[in-house]
């Protein structure tokens, strides 16, 4: 249940209102809290990389941002408006789009049928196809192919195409590289780089930092459900090894000012 009292409000002193903000969010599954007070800001047109080892709470953070998990305390804000507890489908229609871990395509449907799913935002099917095939021409060649028989990279492209066809304002990407060969990951990140250049606000979760730090404007390291460090990718890179190798940090930066 959402706490109706004492929901923190966004920082009013900042000139630029973040397009997405989590303020002191605690959330989890049932009675088990996975996130222990996350403060995160995504500014308009920014790429924010959320890094951390397995089980750090990165995917749960995205689940909160997409409305799939309601914070037990704390708040979520879009353009400064409290949207804590808004249904995930309403957020998706508004323009918050999640590309889930494991692609989230319908494997027994073909490419066209999968793309038809993106018409829920009100775009016509032909519009969706134009947008999808313009970004990923390879999908156009395989439009009648059953999605489950596509290669891992193509399935990920389909997932991205379906998301982009809805013309989101905020894109949440969960573990793009999961189960894919490095060369495919590199190709996919090239697409993300292009998408990022168009000015879309992207919150991207990754376990493997190498590719993502190159394209992020800012990055954060998560560990044990807490956002330990945020800052420019260059400053984060030094902290990464410690986070992954299990070194504990008891520094003032444990709750950085955004």
């Amino acid at each position: 249940m959402t706490s109706m009292q004492a929901v923190p409000t966004p920082d009013a002193t900042d000139d630029e209102v973040p397009i997405l903000q989590l303020a002191a969010v605690r959330a989890g599954y049932g009675r088990i809290d996975v996130l222990h007070g996350i403060d995160l800001e995504l500014r308009a047109g920014e790429v924010f990389a959320l890094l951390g080892p397995n089980g750090a709470g990165k995917s749960t953070t995205l689940a909160v941002c997409s409305g799939q998990i309601t914070p037990s305390t704390g708040g979520m804000f879009l353009c400064g408006r409290d949207v804590t507890g808004v249904a995930p489908d309403a957020l998706a229609r508004a323009g918050v789009c999640l590309i889930p871990e494991g692609r989230g395509i319908f494997p027994n449907l073909n490419v066209l049928e999968n793309l038809r799913m993106a018409t829920f935002t009100g775009h016509s099917f032909s519009q969706v196809l134009d947008l999808a095939f313009a970004q990923f021409p390879r999908l156009g060649e395989r439009r009648k192919q059953t999605a489950g028989t596509l290669s891992g990279g193509e399935q990920q492209m389909l997932s991205m195409a379906r998301a982009l066809a809805t013309e989101p304002a905020v894109l949440l990407i969960d573990e793009l590289s999961m189960g894919l060969a490095p060369i495919i990951v590199e190709e996919l990140y090239e697409h993300v780089r292009r998408i990022a250049a168009s000015g879309l606000s992207i919150l991207i979760v990754e376990q493997f930092a190498h590719e993502i730090l190159g394209l992020a404007d800012r990055a954060g390291i998560m560990l044990h459900g807490r956002l330990l460090h945020t800052g420019p990718p260059a400053s984060i890179a030094d902290e990464l090894a410690d986070a992954y190798l299990g070194a504990e940090h008891e520094t003032p930066a444990a709750h950085p000012s955004q």
Partner: peptide, 9 residues
């Protein structure tokens, strides 16, 4: 326009 339900998860 989003309808805030206050945690109707």
């Amino acid at each position: 326009k989003l309808k805030v339900t206050g945690g109707g998860a």
